[in-house]
Design a protein around this nucleic acid. Structure first.
Lengths: 341, 341
DNA sequence: TCGGCAAATGCAAGCGCTTACATCAGTGTT
DNA sequence: AACACTGATGTAAGCGCTTGCATTTGCCGA
């Protein structure tokens, strides 16, 4: 008799349906192996008892959790939100559940979270960017947990990845800025240490300067945490200099939104007095005034494909080579000709 | 001998340290019950083997997962992001891991996700709002999984909750709008069905109209999905009417941002031609032009307290009564006097 | 009619861990 | 010196499920 107080178990269902636990288990996991009549009886028992399989037991017996972990730097702004949403949708469609945790851009926290997720039996992991302690990669390999790198793409790295060329995309955007006659260009970047995307974006701007025959060390870079307020502060510093830049390229749209606010506060006209650009093309970019010139990233596509690739790896498919997604420069009102041109 | 290929188990550690599995388990879970010397030996073995406890086994034996689930309507925009981030931070500090999933505002998906999280052994659940199939609440009760309702607060409901009075807050904001002389007020709301927050906000506006002796059925309400674009569409519809409203109150900041975009596209001046308000006071509200008048919600505080309360419940504390957090009306440039006043 | 085969189901051995209880070795008491 | 007691550790019984293998059942052809 099912004990009336604790949650029902396979046993209880089996007893109620008058079959063995094995049959119940099969009904739940490979219904085609059970005759229709029995199956109906079992399913009714399941229904009546309100039975839910015990996850721990199932995991232990089956060695699979159907859980995928994602470790992102932050959930607070929208940078990762859309891609993650698409990732989860695809996962959900394939019967997997997503576990998200965030690191606040702290490598130590990231390490903890990775271990926590692996300990919790994540079948696979979504990681942002490449740059982390190599020991973590060996740890994952040792534990047999596949991982996929996203939001970045490195041709030379064999690791599974779905991303885009941060450096090339930023170089292209910088090319557009330079083409507008800007020569005094500054950049507001996230901290580059441990953040390859940020570092690549700075490098991209340098690439563009160089290829135009401009002095690349003339590029002034302010590093700061991601955030609207930090973007405001950085922009204010920049524009109060003796010779302020005529274009400020930001490491992402959030910083750029902050820069725009600061410009407004300082009474500067954008793009009349100074041009501002972002990166990511999140919704924010369209809403701010003036609308932001930025790099469009196919976040949803990235999330979806990452899910597909990761599931394939989890299910034992041979690891695919990294995939590069194409980005495009979105020219909007925040970029104009350099003043005096 | 530890099999060289599979991951090490408690057994392996015990063997290596020359103790029983019970002792190893105790070292890991209640170190003070083991003599220092033994403990050191065990910890060394753990270290050398790179042992990580098997989550499933642990869960099954201990009946606890130290995992909390959160089910939010969406991760795509920032409405829930900040609160969730705070929730996770507090959880993490207390040794719990957060599992997030989203429902796309679909009650069926929510049901699935709740079951999935319970099946995955979530010790407790964070839910948004009250409005859902009562069967779900009984299911949770039967499964013994405590849940806390957030982003809403209902005095009359005994359910554990940490939230704010959506209706009262919106009424207060509407009061401010009316005080500016607005009489033709329209509202852009999320779909109210299954979304008590949205419904309460509409009701709040009606309350305010009534208490000012205005005809509450004169309030025109457009329901739409949450999103910037949907906000734009709704605003366009509203402003193209023969007698357009002089103030448009939006169910949240995202819709309001869309409304502001639409106003700009239509060549309307805000607040000269029409005032716009939001709700939530997410970062967006400060960035848009003009800055948004909205209701400030203490998201981080809510997230933090929700974590504390939920953990207390999970750990067996008697259920606390619902907690109400205070909101405040944030007046910014998007609200001005009604035209012609 | 009966042997043989396949399909359906049952049996029971784990999966790796926690924990109640048993055991054992010291310590202090009388 | 015998005893009770305490603290450290070991023993072993599950936790609820999956799954390889054994058993049963029903049907076919000979």
């Amino acid at each position: 008799m099912p004990s009336s107080h604790s949650t029902p178990t396979l046993q209880d269902v089996a007893r109620k349906a008058g079959v063995s636990t094995a049959t119940v288990s099969r009904c739940l996991n490979s219904p085609e192996r059970v005759v229709a009549e029995t199956r109906t009886r079992v399913m009714e028992a399941v229904e009546q008892l309100g039975y839910t399989p015990n996850f721990g037991a199932r995991v232990m017996a089956a060695k699979r959790t159907f859980t995928i972990g994602a470790i992102v730097p932050t959930m607070e702004n929208a940078i990762f939100a859309r891609g993650l949403q698409a990732f989860q949708e695809e996962l959900h469609a394939r019967g997997y559940t997503l576990l998200v945790s965030s690191t606040a851009y702290d490598a130590r926290v990231e390490k903890e979270q990775i271990k926590a997720l692996v300990a919790r039996g994540a079948d696979g992991l979504l990681l942002i960017g490449y740059d982390r302690d190599p020991a973590l990669y060996s740890y994952l390999a040792q534990q047999g947990v596949p991982a996929i790198v996203t939001w970045a793409y490195a041709r030379h790295d064999a690791r599974a990845a779905i991303g885009f060329d941060n450096r090339g995309a930023m170089a292209q955007l910088a090319g557009a800025v330079i083409a507008q006659g800007h020569r005094r260009i500054a950049m507001i970047s996230a901290h580059q240490r441990g953040n390859d995307r940020a570092a690549d974006r700075v490098a991209g701007v340098r690439d563009a300067l160089r290829s135009q025959g401009l002095a690349e060390d003339s590029l002034q870079v302010i590093e700061t945490a991601y955030g609207i307020e930090t973007g405001e502060v950085a922009m204010t510093t920049l524009m109060r200099a003796r010779v302020p830049p005529t274009a400020v390229m930001c490491g992402n749209d959030v910083l750029a939104a902050g820069a725009l606010c600061a410009a407004a506060d300082l009474g500067l006209n954008v793009p009349g007095d100074v041009s501002v650009t972002g990166f990511d093309d999140i919704e924010l970019a369209r809403i701010v005034t003036p609308a932001l010139t930025t790099v469009h990233v196919p976040h949803r596509e990235m999330g979806r494909k990452a899910a597909q690739a990761l599931i394939a790896m989890v299910e034992g498919a041979p690891q695919e080579p990294p995939t590069e997604l194409t980005t495009s420069v979105q020219i909007r009102a925040s970029l104009g000709p350099a003043p005096g041109i």
